[in-house]
């Protein structure tokens, strides 16, 4: 009986160790739907929120709390303004329907810190730093101009991870983030936006 108790205790201990280290060394992929809302100077260009986005990550857990990885994705911003008359520098007046279109593709080195790796709801903070492929087009009527560039981007983030089962490696991820993208063109100084994303996080292989 005593031996049985010792064996049971050992099994529980091993299980506990495994549980504590469940995330360590794990590489996961996150696929999120994202919506983003322009702020700051970007809002003067496009004030409508974008509900056409995707946020992709591959992150490697160094330990239960710390993960590093890469973030990419896509967000499509678009707004069409009603016809208005614009005064140009040469004194001419142009009446046009102005359409602004911006697509952003981030390429970020990412860091995550998980505050509660064993909890059912796991809050985390993160930061991404890198660049962003920016495709900017402005149309006066059907006549457009464009500027494509690779801009600096920083992206602080907070979020929650909900594993589908306790201690599980697959689950839902909900996060909010702020995109900081300096971008100078046509009076615009940045393409900053606030974003939210919801998606699924799963390991790259079965464990």
């Amino acid at each position: 009986m005593k031996n049985s108790k010792i064996v049971l205790l050992l099994m529980l201990s091993v299980a506990g160790i495994v549980k504590v280290n469940a995330q360590q060394g794990l590489t996961k992929v996150e696929v999120n739907y994202s919506a983003a809302f322009p702020t700051s100077s970007f809002k003067d260009l496009i004030s409508d929120g974008s509900f056409r986005g995707i946020d992709l990550k591959i992150i490697h857990n160094i330990n239960d709390k710390i993960a590093v990885g890469l973030t990419t994705g896509f967000q499509d911003f678009y707004q069409k303004y009603p016809r208005a008359v614009y005064k140009l520098n040469d004194g001419s007046d142009v009446s046009a329907v102005v359409s602004n279109s911006v697509q952003t593709v981030p390429l970020l080195a990412t860091f995550h810190y998980n505050f509660g790796p064993q909890q059912r709801l796991q809050p985390f903070v993160g930061a991404g730093v890198g660049g962003d492929i920016v495709l900017y087009r402005q149309y006066l009527g059907e006549f457009g101009s464009s500027k494509n560039s690779f801009a600096f981007q920083a992206q602080p983030r907070i979020g929650l991870y909900f594993p589908f089962r306790e201690g599980g490696t697959t689950g839902l991820t909900l996060s909010g983030y702020y995109n900081i993208i300096p971008f100078k063109y046509n009076g615009t100084t940045n393409l900053n936006s606030f974003g939210v994303s919801l998606g699924i996080s799963f390991p790259t292989r079965n464990y």
Binding site: R52, D76, V94, L140, G141
Partner: peptide, 27 residues
Amino acid sequence: LIALVTGCTKEPLNNLTDDESRIYITN
């Protein structure tokens, strides 16, 4: 998800009527 999102990209020229496509410039 990727297919859904990329398929929903708004192409400015596809969202213009003939009236909206016109520009009037005076000086």
